[in-house]
Design a binder for these strands. Structure first.
Length: 472
RNA sequence: GGUCCCAUCGUCUAGUGGUUAGGACGCUGGCCUCUCACGCCGGAAACCGGGGUUCAAGUCCCCGUGGGACUACCA
Protein backbone atom coordinates (compact mmCIF):
# COMPACT_ATOMS: atom_id res chain seq x y z
CA UNK A 1 0.00 0.00 0.00
CA UNK A 2 1.14 3.44 -0.83
CA UNK A 3 0.14 6.52 1.02
CA UNK A 4 0.48 8.90 -1.91
CA UNK A 5 -2.63 10.44 -3.20
CA UNK A 6 -3.93 9.14 -6.51
CA UNK A 7 -6.47 10.57 -8.91
CA UNK A 8 -7.66 9.34 -12.25
CA UNK A 9 -9.41 10.45 -15.37
CA UNK A 10 -11.59 7.77 -16.91
CA UNK A 11 -13.14 8.83 -20.19
CA UNK A 12 -15.10 6.49 -22.39
CA UNK A 13 -13.77 6.40 -25.95
CA UNK A 14 -17.02 7.09 -27.68
CA UNK A 15 -16.14 10.45 -29.16
CA UNK A 16 -13.72 13.31 -28.81
CA UNK A 17 -12.53 14.82 -25.58
CA UNK A 18 -15.10 17.47 -24.87
CA UNK A 19 -14.95 20.60 -22.81
CA UNK A 20 -16.57 19.06 -19.75
CA UNK A 21 -14.33 16.02 -19.75
CA UNK A 22 -11.31 18.22 -20.26
CA UNK A 23 -12.11 20.22 -17.18
CA UNK A 24 -12.61 17.07 -15.14
CA UNK A 25 -9.25 15.83 -16.38
CA UNK A 26 -7.69 19.18 -15.59
CA UNK A 27 -9.01 19.19 -12.02
CA UNK A 28 -7.76 15.67 -11.45
CA UNK A 29 -4.40 16.52 -12.92
CA UNK A 30 -4.06 19.73 -10.94
CA UNK A 31 -5.06 18.07 -7.71
CA UNK A 32 -2.52 15.30 -8.22
CA UNK A 33 0.23 17.71 -9.16
CA UNK A 34 -0.57 20.10 -6.34
CA UNK A 35 -0.38 17.38 -3.76
CA UNK A 36 2.52 15.51 -5.27
CA UNK A 37 0.25 12.59 -6.03
CA UNK A 38 -0.16 10.51 -9.14
CA UNK A 39 -2.53 10.92 -12.02
CA UNK A 40 -3.83 7.79 -13.71
CA UNK A 41 -5.48 7.55 -17.10
CA UNK A 42 -7.98 4.80 -17.68
CA UNK A 43 -10.02 4.29 -20.81
CA UNK A 44 -13.46 2.94 -20.03
CA UNK A 45 -14.15 0.95 -23.13
CA UNK A 46 -16.46 -1.74 -21.83
CA UNK A 47 -19.20 -0.61 -24.15
CA UNK A 48 -18.19 -2.73 -27.12
CA UNK A 49 -20.82 -1.12 -29.30
CA UNK A 50 -19.67 2.45 -29.02
CA UNK A 51 -15.99 2.40 -28.14
CA UNK A 52 -13.48 3.09 -30.90
CA UNK A 53 -9.73 3.27 -31.13
CA UNK A 54 -9.98 6.51 -33.03
CA UNK A 55 -11.73 8.06 -30.05
CA UNK A 56 -9.05 6.83 -27.69
CA UNK A 57 -6.40 8.42 -29.85
CA UNK A 58 -8.36 11.65 -30.12
CA UNK A 59 -8.68 11.85 -26.34
CA UNK A 60 -5.00 11.15 -25.77
CA UNK A 61 -4.04 13.76 -28.36
CA UNK A 62 -6.27 16.37 -26.77
CA UNK A 63 -4.86 15.72 -23.32
CA UNK A 64 -1.33 15.95 -24.62
CA UNK A 65 -2.16 19.22 -26.33
CA UNK A 66 -3.45 20.65 -23.08
CA UNK A 67 -0.36 19.49 -21.26
CA UNK A 68 -2.20 17.01 -19.04
CA UNK A 69 0.42 14.34 -18.70
CA UNK A 70 -0.48 11.15 -16.92
CA UNK A 71 1.78 9.12 -14.69
CA UNK A 72 0.22 5.71 -15.29
CA UNK A 73 -1.74 4.22 -18.12
CA UNK A 74 -3.57 4.48 -20.30
CA UNK A 75 -5.19 1.38 -18.91
CA UNK A 76 -8.02 -0.17 -20.85
CA UNK A 77 -10.95 -1.34 -18.86
CA UNK A 78 -11.96 -3.93 -21.45
CA UNK A 79 -8.64 -5.69 -20.88
CA UNK A 80 -9.54 -6.13 -17.26
CA UNK A 81 -12.79 -8.04 -17.69
CA UNK A 82 -11.25 -11.20 -16.24
CA UNK A 83 -10.69 -9.32 -13.05
CA UNK A 84 -14.21 -7.95 -13.07
CA UNK A 85 -15.68 -11.41 -13.65
CA UNK A 86 -13.79 -12.85 -10.73
CA UNK A 87 -15.24 -10.15 -8.55
CA UNK A 88 -18.72 -10.88 -9.86
CA UNK A 89 -18.27 -14.55 -9.05
CA UNK A 90 -17.04 -13.67 -5.60
CA UNK A 91 -20.16 -11.63 -4.95
CA UNK A 92 -22.40 -14.39 -6.23
CA UNK A 93 -20.73 -16.95 -4.00
CA UNK A 94 -21.25 -14.68 -1.07
CA UNK A 95 -24.88 -14.13 -1.97
CA UNK A 96 -24.26 -10.43 -2.64
CA UNK A 97 -25.19 -10.73 -6.28
CA UNK A 98 -27.50 -12.97 -8.29
CA UNK A 99 -28.32 -14.05 -11.80
CA UNK A 100 -31.32 -12.48 -13.44
CA UNK A 101 -33.11 -13.72 -16.53
CA UNK A 102 -35.55 -10.89 -17.07
CA UNK A 103 -35.43 -9.80 -20.69
CA UNK A 104 -34.70 -6.21 -21.62
CA UNK A 105 -38.13 -6.01 -23.23
CA UNK A 106 -39.94 -7.20 -20.13
CA UNK A 107 -37.95 -4.74 -18.04
CA UNK A 108 -38.71 -1.91 -20.39
CA UNK A 109 -42.42 -2.69 -20.25
CA UNK A 110 -42.44 -2.78 -16.49
CA UNK A 111 -40.58 0.49 -16.40
CA UNK A 112 -43.07 2.18 -18.66
CA UNK A 113 -45.98 0.79 -16.71
CA UNK A 114 -44.55 1.90 -13.40
CA UNK A 115 -43.90 5.37 -14.73
CA UNK A 116 -47.40 5.61 -16.17
CA UNK A 117 -48.88 4.60 -12.83
CA UNK A 118 -46.69 7.04 -10.98
CA UNK A 119 -44.58 4.40 -9.25
CA UNK A 120 -40.80 4.26 -9.04
CA UNK A 121 -39.40 2.58 -12.15
CA UNK A 122 -36.90 0.52 -10.22
CA UNK A 123 -36.20 -3.18 -10.66
CA UNK A 124 -38.96 -5.15 -8.97
CA UNK A 125 -36.77 -7.96 -7.69
CA UNK A 126 -38.32 -10.70 -9.80
CA UNK A 127 -35.16 -12.82 -9.80
CA UNK A 128 -33.71 -11.59 -6.55
CA UNK A 129 -34.52 -14.68 -4.53
CA UNK A 130 -34.87 -17.32 -7.24
CA UNK A 131 -31.28 -18.50 -6.87
CA UNK A 132 -30.94 -18.80 -10.63
CA UNK A 133 -27.94 -20.29 -12.44
CA UNK A 134 -26.04 -18.68 -15.27
CA UNK A 135 -27.89 -19.18 -18.55
CA UNK A 136 -27.46 -17.71 -22.01
CA UNK A 137 -28.76 -14.17 -21.91
CA UNK A 138 -28.74 -13.92 -18.14
CA UNK A 139 -27.19 -10.95 -16.37
CA UNK A 140 -25.86 -10.47 -12.86
CA UNK A 141 -27.41 -8.03 -10.45
CA UNK A 142 -25.98 -6.59 -7.28
CA UNK A 143 -28.11 -7.33 -4.25
CA UNK A 144 -28.74 -3.91 -2.78
CA UNK A 145 -29.60 -3.14 0.81
CA UNK A 146 -33.31 -2.66 1.40
CA UNK A 147 -32.96 -0.53 4.46
CA UNK A 148 -30.52 1.90 5.92
CA UNK A 149 -28.88 5.06 4.72
CA UNK A 150 -25.74 5.59 2.70
CA UNK A 151 -23.88 8.84 3.11
CA UNK A 152 -21.63 10.25 0.45
CA UNK A 153 -19.02 12.43 2.04
CA UNK A 154 -18.36 14.76 -0.84
CA UNK A 155 -15.37 17.07 -0.80
CA UNK A 156 -17.16 19.79 -2.71
CA UNK A 157 -20.82 19.28 -1.88
CA UNK A 158 -20.58 18.13 1.70
CA UNK A 159 -22.47 15.12 3.04
CA UNK A 160 -25.25 13.76 0.88
CA UNK A 161 -27.45 11.03 2.25
CA UNK A 162 -29.50 8.46 0.39
CA UNK A 163 -32.05 5.98 1.63
CA UNK A 164 -30.89 2.58 0.47
CA UNK A 165 -34.41 1.59 -0.44
CA UNK A 166 -34.22 4.09 -3.27
CA UNK A 167 -31.34 2.21 -4.77
CA UNK A 168 -31.80 -0.39 -7.48
CA UNK A 169 -30.50 -3.92 -7.71
CA UNK A 170 -28.46 -2.80 -10.63
CA UNK A 171 -26.89 -4.97 -13.28
CA UNK A 172 -23.17 -5.44 -12.77
CA UNK A 173 -22.51 -7.92 -15.55
CA UNK A 174 -24.21 -7.82 -18.89
CA UNK A 175 -25.41 -10.74 -20.98
CA UNK A 176 -22.29 -10.34 -23.11
CA UNK A 177 -20.14 -10.95 -20.06
CA UNK A 178 -18.84 -7.41 -19.81
CA UNK A 179 -19.20 -5.49 -16.58
CA UNK A 180 -21.35 -2.39 -16.46
CA UNK A 181 -19.91 0.98 -15.62
CA UNK A 182 -20.98 1.20 -12.01
CA UNK A 183 -19.30 -2.08 -11.23
CA UNK A 184 -16.17 -1.79 -13.33
CA UNK A 185 -15.48 1.70 -12.05
CA UNK A 186 -15.55 0.45 -8.47
CA UNK A 187 -13.27 -2.51 -9.14
CA UNK A 188 -10.79 -0.48 -11.13
CA UNK A 189 -10.67 2.49 -8.82
CA UNK A 190 -10.18 0.14 -5.90
CA UNK A 191 -7.55 -2.02 -7.59
CA UNK A 192 -5.69 1.04 -8.84
CA UNK A 193 -5.69 2.48 -5.35
CA UNK A 194 -7.42 5.64 -6.41
CA UNK A 195 -7.75 7.78 -3.30
CA UNK A 196 -9.72 10.69 -4.74
CA UNK A 197 -12.44 10.32 -7.30
CA UNK A 198 -12.99 13.70 -8.91
CA UNK A 199 -15.72 13.63 -11.53
CA UNK A 200 -18.77 15.45 -12.86
CA UNK A 201 -21.72 15.75 -10.52
CA UNK A 202 -23.86 13.82 -12.96
CA UNK A 203 -22.38 10.89 -11.04
CA UNK A 204 -23.63 11.76 -7.56
CA UNK A 205 -26.66 9.52 -7.84
CA UNK A 206 -24.42 6.58 -8.74
CA UNK A 207 -22.15 7.12 -5.81
CA UNK A 208 -24.19 5.52 -3.02
CA UNK A 209 -24.56 2.30 -5.04
CA UNK A 210 -20.86 2.33 -5.68
CA UNK A 211 -20.14 2.81 -2.01
CA UNK A 212 -22.29 -0.21 -1.24
CA UNK A 213 -20.24 -2.22 -3.71
CA UNK A 214 -16.94 -1.08 -2.24
CA UNK A 215 -18.22 -2.28 1.08
CA UNK A 216 -19.56 -5.57 -0.28
CA UNK A 217 -16.16 -6.25 -1.81
CA UNK A 218 -14.30 -5.21 1.31
CA UNK A 219 -12.50 -2.31 -0.34
CA UNK A 220 -11.68 1.05 1.17
CA UNK A 221 -14.06 3.73 -0.05
CA UNK A 222 -12.18 6.56 -1.76
CA UNK A 223 -12.89 10.25 -1.21
CA UNK A 224 -15.31 11.74 -3.68
CA UNK A 225 -15.39 15.20 -5.16
CA UNK A 226 -18.24 15.93 -7.54
CA UNK A 227 -17.68 19.03 -9.59
CA UNK A 228 -20.62 20.85 -11.10
CA UNK A 229 -21.40 20.50 -14.75
CA UNK A 230 -20.66 22.90 -17.54
CA UNK A 231 -23.83 24.11 -19.22
CA UNK A 232 -24.61 25.71 -22.54
CA UNK A 233 -26.07 29.18 -22.94
CA UNK A 234 -29.58 27.78 -22.39
CA UNK A 235 -28.42 26.25 -19.11
CA UNK A 236 -28.77 22.69 -20.23
CA UNK A 237 -25.89 20.27 -20.31
CA UNK A 238 -23.30 21.46 -22.81
CA UNK A 239 -23.63 19.70 -26.14
CA UNK A 240 -22.87 20.09 -29.83
CA UNK A 241 -25.81 22.33 -30.42
CA UNK A 242 -24.17 24.95 -28.23
CA UNK A 243 -21.27 25.20 -30.68
CA UNK A 244 -17.84 23.64 -30.57
CA UNK A 245 -17.45 21.32 -27.59
CA UNK A 246 -14.44 19.34 -28.71
CA UNK A 247 -11.10 20.37 -27.25
CA UNK A 248 -9.32 19.83 -30.54
CA UNK A 249 -11.86 21.97 -32.37
CA UNK A 250 -10.47 24.87 -30.37
CA UNK A 251 -6.96 23.98 -31.42
CA UNK A 252 -8.13 24.00 -35.01
CA UNK A 253 -9.79 27.35 -34.56
CA UNK A 254 -6.49 28.85 -33.51
CA UNK A 255 -6.69 28.72 -29.73
CA UNK A 256 -3.66 28.28 -27.51
CA UNK A 257 -3.90 25.51 -24.92
CA UNK A 258 -2.92 28.03 -22.26
CA UNK A 259 -6.13 29.93 -22.96
CA UNK A 260 -8.35 26.87 -22.84
CA UNK A 261 -6.78 25.62 -19.64
CA UNK A 262 -7.04 29.02 -18.01
CA UNK A 263 -10.65 29.38 -19.11
CA UNK A 264 -11.67 25.92 -18.01
CA UNK A 265 -10.11 26.11 -14.59
CA UNK A 266 -12.08 29.26 -13.84
CA UNK A 267 -15.31 27.41 -14.49
CA UNK A 268 -16.04 26.28 -10.99
CA UNK A 269 -12.76 27.20 -9.39
CA UNK A 270 -11.43 30.57 -8.34
CA UNK A 271 -8.65 32.24 -6.47
CA UNK A 272 -9.93 35.60 -5.27
CA UNK A 273 -10.16 38.08 -8.11
CA UNK A 274 -7.38 36.59 -10.18
CA UNK A 275 -8.23 35.75 -13.78
CA UNK A 276 -4.92 34.88 -15.41
CA UNK A 277 -3.13 31.73 -14.34
CA UNK A 278 -0.19 29.90 -15.80
CA UNK A 279 -0.09 26.15 -15.49
CA UNK A 280 2.68 26.12 -12.86
CA UNK A 281 0.77 28.73 -10.92
CA UNK A 282 -2.36 26.59 -11.02
CA UNK A 283 -0.44 23.59 -9.77
CA UNK A 284 0.67 25.75 -6.91
CA UNK A 285 -2.73 27.22 -6.08
CA UNK A 286 -5.29 24.56 -6.92
CA UNK A 287 -7.30 23.07 -4.09
CA UNK A 288 -10.62 21.31 -3.95
CA UNK A 289 -12.10 23.56 -1.32
CA UNK A 290 -11.98 26.48 -3.74
CA UNK A 291 -14.22 24.56 -6.14
CA UNK A 292 -17.75 25.94 -6.30
CA UNK A 293 -20.97 23.97 -6.06
CA UNK A 294 -23.05 25.54 -8.78
CA UNK A 295 -22.98 24.75 -12.48
CA UNK A 296 -21.33 27.14 -14.91
CA UNK A 297 -22.41 28.36 -18.31
CA UNK A 298 -19.75 28.09 -20.99
CA UNK A 299 -18.95 31.56 -22.32
CA UNK A 300 -17.06 31.53 -25.63
CA UNK A 301 -16.40 35.30 -25.51
CA UNK A 302 -14.38 35.08 -22.37
CA UNK A 303 -12.38 32.21 -23.78
CA UNK A 304 -11.70 34.31 -26.86
CA UNK A 305 -10.52 37.17 -24.69
CA UNK A 306 -8.14 34.87 -22.86
CA UNK A 307 -6.86 33.55 -26.14
CA UNK A 308 -6.14 37.07 -27.36
CA UNK A 309 -4.36 37.68 -24.08
CA UNK A 310 -2.13 34.64 -24.42
CA UNK A 311 -1.34 35.40 -28.06
CA UNK A 312 -0.36 38.90 -27.05
CA UNK A 313 1.88 37.63 -24.27
CA UNK A 314 3.38 34.74 -26.17
CA UNK A 315 7.01 34.62 -27.17
CA UNK A 316 7.26 35.20 -30.94
CA UNK A 317 9.49 32.16 -31.27
CA UNK A 318 6.78 30.00 -29.81
CA UNK A 319 4.21 31.52 -32.12
CA UNK A 320 6.56 30.92 -35.01
CA UNK A 321 6.16 27.20 -34.37
CA UNK A 322 2.44 27.32 -33.66
CA UNK A 323 1.81 29.28 -36.84
CA UNK A 324 3.80 27.10 -39.23
CA UNK A 325 0.88 24.93 -40.34
CA UNK A 326 -1.45 27.91 -40.58
CA UNK A 327 0.17 30.37 -42.97
CA UNK A 328 -1.28 30.90 -46.44
CA UNK A 329 0.53 29.19 -49.32
CA UNK A 330 2.27 32.40 -50.42
CA UNK A 331 4.24 32.45 -47.19
CA UNK A 332 6.18 29.37 -48.27
CA UNK A 333 9.90 29.86 -48.37
CA UNK A 334 10.03 32.97 -46.22
CA UNK A 335 12.68 32.83 -43.56
CA UNK A 336 11.94 32.61 -39.85
CA UNK A 337 13.33 36.03 -39.21
CA UNK A 338 10.81 37.63 -41.53
CA UNK A 339 7.97 35.50 -40.16
CA UNK A 340 8.79 36.52 -36.63
CA UNK A 341 8.48 40.16 -37.61
CA UNK A 342 5.12 39.45 -39.21
CA UNK A 343 3.99 37.74 -36.04
CA UNK A 344 5.19 40.60 -33.88
CA UNK A 345 3.19 43.04 -36.00
CA UNK A 346 0.01 40.99 -35.82
CA UNK A 347 0.28 39.63 -32.29
CA UNK A 348 -1.34 42.55 -30.47
CA UNK A 349 -4.45 42.47 -32.60
CA UNK A 350 -5.17 38.81 -33.31
CA UNK A 351 -7.71 36.96 -31.22
CA UNK A 352 -6.89 33.57 -32.71
CA UNK A 353 -3.97 32.10 -34.62
CA UNK A 354 -6.25 31.46 -37.56
CA UNK A 355 -7.22 35.11 -37.58
CA UNK A 356 -3.54 36.03 -37.51
CA UNK A 357 -2.86 33.88 -40.53
CA UNK A 358 -5.67 35.37 -42.52
CA UNK A 359 -4.70 38.94 -41.64
CA UNK A 360 -1.14 38.36 -42.81
CA UNK A 361 -1.77 37.84 -46.51
CA UNK A 362 -0.44 41.20 -47.67
CA UNK A 363 2.99 40.53 -46.20
CA UNK A 364 3.55 37.73 -48.70
CA UNK A 365 1.78 39.01 -51.78
CA UNK A 366 3.82 39.71 -54.91
CA UNK A 367 1.11 42.12 -55.91
CA UNK A 368 -0.84 43.82 -53.19
CA UNK A 369 -4.50 43.31 -53.75
CA UNK A 370 -6.36 46.57 -53.21
CA UNK A 371 -9.69 46.61 -51.53
CA UNK A 372 -11.57 48.48 -54.33
CA UNK A 373 -13.47 50.74 -51.99
CA UNK A 374 -10.37 51.62 -49.99
CA UNK A 375 -8.28 52.31 -53.08
CA UNK A 376 -11.02 54.40 -54.65
CA UNK A 377 -11.30 56.50 -51.54
CA UNK A 378 -7.65 57.00 -50.60
CA UNK A 379 -5.49 56.43 -53.68
CA UNK A 380 -6.41 59.74 -55.23
CA UNK A 381 -4.57 62.14 -57.56
CA UNK A 382 -3.78 64.64 -54.79
CA UNK A 383 -1.58 62.18 -52.91
CA UNK A 384 0.39 60.94 -55.91
CA UNK A 385 3.14 63.53 -55.51
CA UNK A 386 3.59 62.74 -51.84
CA UNK A 387 3.86 59.07 -52.59
CA UNK A 388 6.33 59.67 -55.38
CA UNK A 389 8.52 61.74 -53.10
CA UNK A 390 8.28 59.06 -50.47
CA UNK A 391 9.31 56.37 -52.89
CA UNK A 392 12.25 58.44 -54.00
CA UNK A 393 13.72 58.81 -50.54
CA UNK A 394 12.52 55.79 -48.66
CA UNK A 395 15.47 53.61 -49.50
CA UNK A 396 17.85 56.06 -47.91
CA UNK A 397 16.27 55.60 -44.49
CA UNK A 398 18.83 54.43 -42.03
CA UNK A 399 18.36 52.39 -39.97
CA UNK A 400 15.31 50.88 -41.64
CA UNK A 401 13.49 49.97 -38.47
CA UNK A 402 10.48 51.31 -36.58
CA UNK A 403 12.43 54.17 -34.98
CA UNK A 404 14.30 55.12 -38.12
CA UNK A 405 11.14 55.12 -40.20
CA UNK A 406 9.25 57.08 -37.56
CA UNK A 407 11.75 59.92 -37.57
CA UNK A 408 12.07 59.83 -41.34
CA UNK A 409 8.30 60.12 -41.73
CA UNK A 410 8.16 62.93 -39.19
CA UNK A 411 10.82 64.77 -41.10
CA UNK A 412 9.15 64.05 -44.42
CA UNK A 413 5.77 65.52 -43.52
CA UNK A 414 7.34 68.54 -41.88
CA UNK A 415 9.32 69.37 -44.99
CA UNK A 416 6.25 69.07 -47.16
CA UNK A 417 4.08 70.97 -44.71
CA UNK A 418 1.45 68.28 -44.40
CA UNK A 419 -0.12 66.26 -41.65
CA UNK A 420 0.64 62.60 -41.37
CA UNK A 421 -3.08 61.91 -41.59
CA UNK A 422 -2.97 63.21 -45.17
CA UNK A 423 -0.80 60.33 -46.30
CA UNK A 424 -1.36 57.67 -43.68
CA UNK A 425 -4.33 55.92 -45.23
CA UNK A 426 -3.05 56.18 -48.84
CA UNK A 427 0.22 54.73 -47.63
CA UNK A 428 -1.56 51.98 -45.77
CA UNK A 429 -3.52 51.02 -48.87
CA UNK A 430 -0.35 51.05 -50.93
CA UNK A 431 1.41 48.79 -48.45
CA UNK A 432 -1.39 46.49 -47.38
CA UNK A 433 -4.31 47.04 -49.73
CA UNK A 434 -6.59 47.60 -46.76
CA UNK A 435 -7.76 50.38 -44.46
CA UNK A 436 -6.99 48.31 -41.40
CA UNK A 437 -3.53 47.04 -40.58
CA UNK A 438 -0.74 47.15 -38.04
CA UNK A 439 1.06 50.48 -37.67
CA UNK A 440 2.56 51.82 -40.88
CA UNK A 441 6.05 52.07 -39.46
CA UNK A 442 5.89 48.47 -38.29
CA UNK A 443 4.62 47.25 -41.62
CA UNK A 444 7.37 49.13 -43.43
CA UNK A 445 10.09 47.80 -41.20
CA UNK A 446 8.86 44.25 -41.68
CA UNK A 447 8.46 44.56 -45.43
CA UNK A 448 11.88 46.11 -45.97
CA UNK A 449 12.78 49.24 -47.90
CA UNK A 450 12.93 47.67 -51.34
CA UNK A 451 9.49 46.15 -51.07
CA UNK A 452 8.08 49.33 -49.57
CA UNK A 453 9.41 51.39 -52.45
CA UNK A 454 7.97 49.01 -55.01
CA UNK A 455 4.57 49.01 -53.40
CA UNK A 456 4.44 52.78 -53.20
CA UNK A 457 5.44 53.07 -56.82
CA UNK A 458 2.80 50.59 -57.76
CA UNK A 459 0.20 52.67 -55.95
CA UNK A 460 1.36 55.75 -57.84
CA UNK A 461 0.96 53.85 -61.08
CA UNK A 462 -2.47 52.76 -60.02
CA UNK A 463 -3.46 56.37 -59.33
CA UNK A 464 -2.18 57.55 -62.66
CA UNK A 465 -3.86 54.75 -64.49
CA UNK A 466 -7.23 55.30 -62.87
CA UNK A 467 -6.92 59.04 -63.54
CA UNK A 468 -6.40 58.43 -67.25
CA UNK A 469 -9.22 55.89 -67.37
CA UNK A 470 -11.53 58.42 -65.80
CA UNK A 471 -10.43 61.12 -68.24
CA UNK A 472 -11.05 59.08 -71.36
C1' G B 1 -43.26 11.09 -11.35
C1' G B 2 -39.13 9.70 -7.73
C1' U B 3 -34.16 10.70 -5.85
C1' C B 4 -30.21 14.07 -5.54
C1' C B 5 -27.75 18.70 -6.48
C1' C B 6 -27.70 23.96 -7.24
C1' A B 7 -29.26 29.47 -6.72
C1' U B 8 -24.72 37.11 -6.13
C1' C B 9 -24.75 41.71 -12.42
C1' G B 10 -26.58 38.74 -19.26
C1' U B 11 -22.08 35.27 -18.22
C1' C B 12 -17.71 33.51 -14.96
C1' U B 13 -17.03 34.70 -10.00
C1' A B 14 -15.18 37.29 -4.87
C1' G B 15 -17.78 37.39 -0.42
C1' U B 16 -17.53 32.95 5.06
C1' G B 17 -23.07 37.83 10.20
C1' G B 18 -21.78 44.43 10.21
C1' U B 19 -18.88 45.94 2.65
C1' U B 20 -20.78 52.39 -0.88
C1' A B 21 -21.80 44.00 -2.45
C1' G B 22 -15.52 43.68 -5.33
C1' G B 23 -13.13 41.71 -9.94
C1' A B 24 -13.39 39.65 -15.04
C1' C B 25 -15.87 38.79 -20.02
C1' G B 26 -19.45 41.22 -22.87
C1' C B 27 -21.99 46.06 -23.54
C1' U B 28 -21.12 51.31 -23.24
C1' G B 29 -18.94 56.92 -22.75
C1' G B 30 -14.09 59.12 -23.10
C1' C B 31 -8.64 59.41 -23.59
C1' C B 32 -4.48 57.72 -26.59
C1' U B 33 -3.82 57.60 -32.05
C1' C B 34 -1.64 56.85 -38.97
C1' U B 35 -6.37 52.79 -39.40
C1' C B 36 -7.73 48.67 -36.38
C1' A B 37 -6.56 46.62 -32.06
C1' C B 38 -3.97 47.09 -27.38
C1' G B 39 -3.71 50.14 -23.16
C1' C B 40 -5.77 53.74 -19.66
C1' C B 41 -10.00 56.36 -17.19
C1' G B 42 -15.42 56.24 -16.41
C1' G B 43 -20.69 54.10 -16.79
C1' A B 44 -25.03 50.85 -16.81
C1' A B 45 -25.71 46.01 -14.67
C1' A B 46 -26.73 41.23 -9.32
C1' C B 47 -27.73 39.05 -3.73
C1' C B 48 -34.90 34.28 -6.87
C1' G B 49 -39.35 34.89 -3.27
C1' G B 50 -41.39 34.35 1.67
C1' G B 51 -40.82 33.26 6.57
C1' G B 52 -37.70 32.68 10.73
C1' U B 53 -32.73 33.04 14.05
C1' U B 54 -30.00 37.60 15.39
C1' C B 55 -28.94 44.14 17.81
C1' A B 56 -27.48 43.01 12.61
C1' A B 57 -28.42 38.14 6.99
C1' G B 58 -26.04 37.91 0.26
C1' U B 59 -23.89 35.10 4.31
C1' C B 60 -27.32 30.57 9.27
C1' C B 61 -32.37 27.61 9.35
C1' C B 62 -37.21 26.35 7.07
C1' C B 63 -40.74 26.57 3.10
C1' G B 64 -41.65 27.88 -1.72
C1' U B 65 -40.02 28.93 -6.78
C1' G B 66 -36.68 28.20 -10.64
C1' G B 67 -32.78 25.48 -13.01
C1' G B 68 -29.90 21.03 -13.54
C1' A B 69 -28.51 15.82 -13.05
C1' C B 70 -29.77 10.81 -12.41
C1' U B 71 -33.63 7.34 -12.86
C1' A B 72 -30.07 1.85 -19.22
C1' C B 73 -27.59 -4.99 -20.27
C1' C B 74 -24.14 4.10 -21.75
C1' A B 75 -20.20 5.94 -19.26
Amino acid sequence: MTSTLRTRFAPSPTGYLHIGGARTALFNWLFARHTGGRFVLRIEDTDQERSTEASTKAILDAMAWMGLTWDEGPFFQAERVGLHRNMVLKLIEEGKAYYCTCTPEALENKRKKALAEGRKPKYDGTCRNKNLKKTPGSVVRFRGAETGVTIVEDLVKGNISFNNEELDDLIIERADGYPTYNFAVVIDDAMMNITHVIRGDDHVNNTPRQILMYQALGFDVPKFAHVPMILGSDKTRLSKRHGATSVMAYKDMGYLPDALVNYLVRLGWSHGDQEIFSLPELVDLFTLDAVGKSPAVFNPEKLLWLNAHYIKEADTRRLLEEMKPLWPAEAKGRDDDFMQKVIADLQPRAKTLVEMASAAGFYFADDVLYDPEAAGKFLTADVADHLKALAASIESVEPFNKEGIESFLKDFIEKRGIKFKAVAQPLRIALTGKTVSPGIDEVMATLGSKCVRERILKAVAWIEMSASTNAS
